[in-house]
């Protein structure tokens, strides 16, 4: 499935400074694996040492949080957008 992956500002330095990229994957987990295989520096920002998605990083398929779908096994279809949305705290 051809999908689009949105990279947040905070993680762009670890993803070749791109704001989004197009890739092929059947599930959210596959898409993220494909991303971190290309940009290995991203891995520690997205996953804990034991391979779980970090709790301050949310992943959405279109507008839905994958925690309320099938998590990393969530299937994706052509044209879907996966967004990585980390917690940010700036305000001053």
């Amino acid at each position: 499935m051809a999908i689009k992956l949105e990279i947040p500002t905070a993680l762009r330095p670890f993803a070749g400074k791109q704001s989004s990229l197009d890739l092929e994957a059947a599930t959210v987990g596959e898409a993220l694996k494909s991303l971190t295989n290309t940009y290995s520096d991203l891995r520690k920002h997205l996953y804990t040492d034991d391979g779980r998605i970090r709790s301050f990083v949310n992943i959405y398929v279109n507008d839905e949080d994958i925690r309320y779908l099938e998590k990393e096994n969530t299937p994706i279809k052509d044209g879907d957008t996966i967004s990585i949305v980390p917690s940010i705290a700036g305000g001053r």
């Binding site: 520690k44 917690s87 700036g90």
Partner: peptide
């Protein structure tokens, strides 16, 4: 509900380093 836990210190740049 949105973010159960904060990032560990050091993993996100501080505001001074991050800029706005």
């Amino acid at each position: 509900c949105l973010y159960p836990e904060p990032p560990p210190p050091g993993l996100v740049p501080s505001c001074a380093e991050g800029g706005v």
